[in-house]
Design a protein around this nucleic acid. Structure first.
Lengths: 120, 120
DNA sequence: GCCACTAGTGTCAGGAATGATACCATGCCG
DNA sequence: CGGCATGGTATCATTCCTGACACTAGTGGC
């Protein structure tokens, strides 16, 4: 369900920039990663509480895609009621500086984002 | 034409991450910015040559959106044939660490992006 | 006159991304 | 037995994004 991926990373010198962006360019992926960096481990329901305006379906989707990309791991505990924990993989953890850079910029230049269409 | 923007940056602590991403989350925006960081000033046609698989319409679109967001400036020279130059604004230049972080990650972990659907 | 060049714009269409809503299994609690 | 909790799925609809293609203006060159 993500956009088309780059396979040959030779299309242009900046191609890897695009390719990286495709990994967490999904509408909520960066937010998911951000919360994982903050909290370490999160259950499905905790994500829901932290991101109330994301539908269950979208959340599942984005989590699965992040998992498929090897950025997060999903652990199911065979309990009732079910428990599923998500956490960053080693690869996912390497994204920390990237997310941090995004956050830092956003915090500093948030004013540049104002005055747009209505959003969340 | 971009996705819905955040106006109140209070939806969640990581909201600014998403908001920042919306600025250059467009399919080709990061690439445009990247080339501008590399070359400083670029004409429309130079973008086309650097990004051959982007249609003219998309390129115009993405450039206009970046301009509307105050990240790049567009200077028209009243000549024939017409000449239009694009360059980063001061605000746009502040994104450099972010783009660099993306590039750095992509270059290092490109292997994690392999084996996906066909792309460019 | 005819063609080329640059930097676009207009229109249309297809597909992907997203959202709303309803539904499921299991086991505990009362 | 009924209801609740968790972590999902399934289906459908819609909206948004993206691309293909054709077309434009003004001038220079042949």
């Amino acid at each position: 369900m993500p956009r088309i991926r780059h396979t040959t990373l030779t299309c242009s010198p900046g191609c890897t920039v695009e390719a990286t962006l495709e990994l967490f360019g999904g509408k909520w992926k960066a937010l998911i990663l951000y919360h994982l960096f903050e909290d370490g481990v999160l259950r499905f329901g905790e994500f829901r509480r932290r991101m109330p305006n994301v539908t269950q379906r979208m959340l599942t989707n984005q989590l699965r895609e992040l998992e498929a990309d090897g950025l997060i791991s999903r652990t199911v505990f065979p309990e009732v009621p079910p428990r599923v924990e998500y956490e960053l993989t080693d690869l996912g953890k390497t994204l920390k500086p990237v997310i941090q850079a995004l956050k830092k910029w956003g915090d500093r230049y948030a004013h540049a984002l104002q005055g747009r269409e209505t959003g969340t």
